[in-house]
């Protein structure tokens, strides 16, 4: 695994908890007399965070997992499981799948590195695409008509067993050693 991927993964791990939960924790340990810290809805959103909140109270049963087949850049099939509500990017991160450079902006819609390609029938099941996602897809390398960003697709039971292909690597113009690993 390249240094780049490793660093990113470490950061992802540290950034995973819900801001809401951490706020409460910090205040509870730092200040006496405070019962609860409530923050506005604007700071809690997206699949990852909701999942983290829900798993803390009601652990998900193994049989509610959704199976996803990834085809990596070498054409190998990798099967991974994720929980409903997680995004496909979460699955790649949580399962430690080694797709170099994948999900650089941590699902904040600032890049298109979590670009995935689907079969047409699967693509239709993935739900509507927002304007912001379309704008980022325009900048994706190797774009197809059935491309989506992995960070924008939330797992549901109906997506069980789908296949997502990681597109060919971006033309790498870098010439130094660490990218060749």
């Amino acid at each position: 695994m390249s240094l780049v991927t490793l660093t990113r993964r470490l950061l992802n791990l540290s950034a995973q908890g819900s801001p809401l939960r951490r706020s409460a924790f910090v205040l509870a340990s730092d200040t006496a007399g405070l019962k609860r810290c409530s923050l506005p809805g604007q700071l809690q959103a997206c699949c990852t965070r909701q999942r983290n909140v829900s798993t803390s109270t009601q652990p998900l049963r193994a049989d509610s997992k959704v199976t996803i087949n990834f085809i990596n850049r070498d054409g190998e099939k990798i099967t991974a499981k994720g929980s409903p509500g997680e995004s496909l990017l979460d699955v790649v991160i949580n399962q430690d799948l080694d797709f170099d450079g994948f999900g650089a902006c941590e699902g904040t819609l600032a890049c298109s590195t979590c670009h995935l390609i689907f079969d047409e029938d699967v693509y239709k099941k993935l739900g509507p695409v927002t304007d912001e996602e379309m704008d980022m897809l325009d900048l994706a390398y190797g774009l197809t008509d059935t491309s989506r960003l992995g960070c924008q697709i939330c797992l549901t039971r109906s997506l069980d067993g789908i296949t997502a292909r990681v597109p060919d690597s971006v033309t790498d113009i870098r010439q130094s050693e660490d990218v060749s690993s």
Partner: peptide, 14 residues
């Protein structure tokens, strides 16, 4: 890494 989680997602910013 801290700030992008707060002000970059369109849903949060909305």
């Amino acid at each position: 890494s801290v700030l992008r989680q707060l002000i970059m997602r369109p849903k949060d910013v909305a």
